[in-house]
Design a protein around this nucleic acid. Structure first.
Lengths: 211, 211
DNA sequence: AAAATCATTTAGGAGTGCTAACAAAACAAA
DNA sequence: TTTGTTTTGTTAGCACTCCTAAATGATTTT
């Protein structure tokens, strides 16, 4: 045997760490081309994805940074006329909106992970599908353990009906758009996603993985 | 069908991006506990892993940052007595070594990705093995496309003999330690790794994936 | 109405990351 | 040898990230 083979899970963690390092490096280059920084790009991406006006505190939570850091980044973007601040119903709070130019830039900047998609293309169709499924499982596990902010995923969505159909290609069902779909269509950022409480998430998850 | 289902590869890229964001957030907490910053932690990790004395330029390349940034981080670590600088044969260059305290800290800080390993544990044994294999393929693709710095992986190593044995559990062979091993033992950071030129890498890779 | 709480900002400090400009050593050519 | 070029790393200057602690209003609780 090889000397001290780490457990597979450890090696996965290390590999993902390497990937994250590469992503971090790339995010600087990608964002610099658009005249912004990685954090600013992330803010734009989140606001572009967001279903409605987003609060500053919510944004900070999604980014995994402190409120002051988020406040800073937003201020910079406001100065660059990419984001607008408005006070919400609660006069203490601030809600954020992309400006026209902000939307344009968010769209262009969204492609900065494309080089990763290229690498994923080197997998076979089956491998790719399995990899995405496992990736979703890992992200869900991190979400449940509180290590990642809540994602708008099918597998934790109110409208998700796992294995609702006999069809082995499209076994799942989305009650929101009322149509069947398969594992390869599972989403990570659905605008129509709706949260459930812990118990219902657990139950739905068990049903999802049990087949 | 769901509205505008992205291609699977795109969703993988997006998922990995989410993961990278979580990693970035965690790296601050993890490193802060040790009294350092993420970049400094990364420097310690690389030096601990490195087979021999590492040059500053090499380190900068591995980290995917500019020379001044690496120089700064190293200076801070030298001030904290975690790293030592020595001039190499070439009097212009600097080689880096961990101090005793630096080694201790590097070991402790290496565990900051453990929460990811925990998430990976939620996969089944088969899923986990397949996931690691695909992850390695993705990392290799990024390495060949120049999007990630060279990793010391089995699959690009001089000593790697893919499918050298009939044994389906341990089909591969490492010529350095002269023993058979399987897909689940493929390494990402082997100290004994030895580079090959492009043509030989390609040939070996073809042999590896073809079975 | 006073006190506690909440959302956000300000202040201050260490660090990250860049490019540009600079030294010093090593190399190459004349 | 002398001159010019390349390589290795540092310094300088700037914008931004990230933190904690403290401050500022607005809202809720007592």
């Amino acid at each position: 045997m090889l000397t001290q083979p780490d457990a597979i899970a450890k090696r996965i963690a290390s590999g993902l760490g390497r990937l994250a390092l590469a992503l971090k490096a790339k995010s600087w280059k990608g964002a610099a081309d658009e005249g912004i920084t990685p954090t600013q790009g992330e803010v734009l991406a989140r606001l572009a994805d967001a279903p409605s006006n987003t609060r500053l505190s919510e944004l900070a939570h999604q980014l995994g940074v402190s409120a002051p850091t988020a406040s800073d980044a937003v201020s910079t973007l406001v100065a660059k006329a990419l984001v607008e601040k408005r006070s919400g119903d609660d006069k203490r709070s601030v809600t954020l909106k992309l400006t026209k130019e902000g939307k344009r830039l968010a769209t262009r900047a969204a492609g900065w992970t494309d080089f990763l998609a290229g690498a994923a293309e080197t997998l076979s169709d089956n491998e790719r599908e399995d990899f995405l499924a496992s990736l979703i499982k890992i992200i869900r596990a991190l979400q449940e353990s509180g290590d990642i902010s809540t994602q708008r995923m099918c597998v934790t969505c109110e409208h998700f009906r796992p294995h609702a159909h006999k069809d082995s290609v499209n076994p799942h069902h989305c009650a929101f758009i009322d149509s069947a779909f398969g594992a390869s269509s599972l989403r990570l950022n659905c605008a129509d996603q709706s949260e459930m409480d812990f118990a219902r998430r657990e139950e739905k998850w068990r049903k999802f993985v049990s087949c």
